[in-house]
Simulated scan of single mutants.
Amino acid sequence: MTACFLTPQVYARKGADAAQDVLQPGENQVAAAYSLYSSATMMVISVGSGTHGFTLVPAIGEFILTHPNISVPSRGQMYSLNDARQHDWPAGLRNYITKIQRGEGQSGKQYSARYICSLVADFHRTLLYGGWAGNPRSHLRLVYEANPLSYLCEQAGGRGSDGVSRILSIPVTKLHQRLPFFAGSPEDISELESHGDVQQVGTKKYDV
């Protein structure tokens, strides 16, 4: 079993208005983190100078720096996406996935799907081994899911995108604003964006 917790992003205060403090673009973040509990308990954090992983050592009750300066590979060979929804994918996303599965993408390598259906767990593996994790539907919340993960990804040399543009540059207009999300190796994200029509907008909504 894997349990994951995402810590909302941290901003510098702008004034007495709490909404003004929260509804800032992701590029204004000063810190973000998530924790992961499975065979080991980890906390991955950035305060603006790289992304670093700490592992809990139960014998001493302390978190030890085990993954300093995590660096996302420029390209991976895995993607994390719910393939069961491919019948509703837009043409650009379907074409891109088919190409990388066949080894016909820019890297010339065949990609494999690795999908846990836990956003932080899928993202954590991507952070360490490359490739990308995402959801083409407007499902993730920009403020407290997409922005903090994109911040951690960029601090590790990766990219976060909604399939069209950089997530951290997207204006925040409301607390529960939703959008598609793709994050991981910079070359993989750029290749995905280049296909266009990768956002699953206006199609069937699923009960979750």
Rank of each mutant, 00 (worst) to 15 (best):
Q20T: 14
D21C: 09
L23P: 01
Q24N: 09
Q24T: 12
G26V: 03
E27Q: 11
E27I: 14
E27V: 14
N28E: 13
Q29L: 09
V30F: 03
A31E: 06
L36K: 04
Y37D: 12
S38F: 10
S39D: 15
A40V: 08
A40K: 08
A40N: 12
T41V: 14
M42H: 13
M43S: 11
V44M: 07
I45T: 11
I45V: 15
I45Q: 05
S46W: 00
S46R: 00
G48Q: 06
G48T: 12
G48P: 00
H52F: 08
H52L: 10
G53N: 05
F54P: 02
F54E: 04
F54K: 06
L56S: 07
A59H: 13
I60Q: 12
G61H: 10
L65I: 10
T66N: 09
H67Q: 13
S71E: 05
V72Y: 02
S74G: 13
R75L: 10
G76C: 04
M78G: 06
Y79E: 03
L81K: 00
N82R: 01
R85K: 07
H87Y: 12
W89D: 03
P90I: 10
P90L: 05
G92H: 03
L93N: 01
T98R: 06
T98L: 07
K99W: 02
K99N: 07
I100T: 00
I100M: 06
G103Q: 05
E104K: 14
G105A: 04
S107M: 05
G108V: 02
Q110F: 07
S112L: 14
S112D: 14
R114K: 14
Y115I: 01
I116R: 10
I116M: 14
I116A: 15
